[in-house]
């Protein structure tokens, strides 16, 4: 019965010209993205190179590149970590509120209102920070210096303008709140109804149901969301540039008016007035920021996709 041993593979199907052109265009668009990202890295390195190789004496202030960038990296991390610590629990609570506590008919609308927080431009957050938040925190800073001064974080002297590291961290917290809560909301609402109903059927209260069936399921989603928020906070520029009074070096004192700046804010403030090697130094600091956020974001994606693999098994 067997007549021929059929060829092992199909001959490539003939493609019509329309298909070839269209597929080619779409593919080139994708490849363009590869090139752009490679471009970002290459051009940043090229422009940062003079700063990386120049002797310390030629650099601004005659300091080595490391000692110029170090306080900036410290400031960047400190502000972002404050934001993360404040925003994560709040964001999780808000996500729970919208998915399981808010009256059903309001939930969607409230979710939209929280999303509006994400839509507000960062320069406006900066305005709000100096005009509303910072002044209203001044009494608190005074109180903290007097009563909590023994903790290094609140050593003082308390700022009289409120433009402190803590204020910057709080503004950033408000900005990343919607990011973390959006991702948490998504994983919470995907918690399997089967498990939730099983918990309720056992006589669990709402909170016990959430502890049993929602939070375990959403854990890596929360972590991933928090990391994405962290990435955003690390790179945030204008809000920090406006709200932080930056004149100091590395310190953990959160309420004084001499703080280290952040990389992004420093670039935004210095760049327009810079020339020569200073530009290269600023670009080198930008390169450092790029690498930091890259690492954080890749870690975040990894955490989030690990969850996807896990939930696929369900």
């Amino acid at each position: 019965m067997t007549l021929t041993s059929a060829p092992p593979a199909q001959p490539r199907p003939k493609r019509r010209p329309g298909d070839r052109i269209f597929a080619g265009t779409a593919t080139s668009a994708g490849i363009l993205i590869l090139l752009v990202l490679a471009g970002v890295a290459v051009f940043l390195v090229t422009e940062a190179w003079p700063a990386l190789t120049a002797p310390a004496a030629d650099l601004p202030d005659g300091k080595s590149l490391g000692s110029y960038v170090a306080p900036l990296v410290f400031g960047t991390l400190l502000a972002a970590v404050i934001a993360l610590i404040v925003a994560t629990p709040l964001a999780v609570a808000i996500a729970l509120f919208i998915t399981y506590y808010a009256p059903r008919r309001l939930a969607a609308g409230l979710g939209y209102v929280v999303d509006l927080l994400a839509a507000i431009p960062s320069v406006v957050y900066g305005f709000w920070g100096i005009a509303a938040l910072a002044p209203s925190l001044v009494p608190f800073y005074g109180w903290a210096e007097r009563n909590l001064g023994f903790i290094p974080l609140f050593a003082g002297p308390a700022s009289t303008t409120g433009k402190t590291m803590l204020t910057a961290g709080l503004v950033l917290a408000v900005m990343i709140l919607p990011i973390i809560s959006a991702i948490s909301r998504e994983v919470f609402s995907q918690a399997p109804a089967l498990h939730r109903e099983a918990a309720l059927a056992l006589g669990a209260t709402r909170w016990e149901m959430i502890k049993m069936a929602v939070l375990p399921y959403g854990k890596s989603g929360i972590i991933g969301g928090a990391m994405l928020g962290l990435g955003r906070a690390l790179g945030e520029t204008l809000a920090v540039a406006l709200v932080l009074s930056a004149s100091g070096g590395i310190t953990f004192n959160l309420i004084s008016s001499s703080n280290p700046s952040t990389i992004a804010a420093n670039i935004a403030l210095q760049f327009p007035e810079s020339s020569g090697l200073t530009v290269n130094v600023l670009i080198a600091s930008g390169l450092a920021l790029f690498l930091i956020t890259l690492a954080v974001n890749m870690l975040a994606r990894w955490v989030v996709t690990r969850r996807a693999d896990f939930s696929g098994a369900n």
């Binding site: 059929a6 060829p7 092992p8 001959p11 199907p13 003939k14």
Partner: peptide, 30 residues
């Protein structure tokens, strides 16, 4: 040849319609 729409799917053997090989190398699935 709707089969080919699925990535990785292929056939071996012959399908002939009124004497024409459907999977001939010069045949356009469209």
């Amino acid at each position: 040849r709707m089969h080919e729409v699925i990535p990785g799917a292929r056939v071996e053997g012959k399908v002939v319609i009124d004497g024409q090989d459907l999977y001939g190398s010069d045949v356009d699935p469209v």
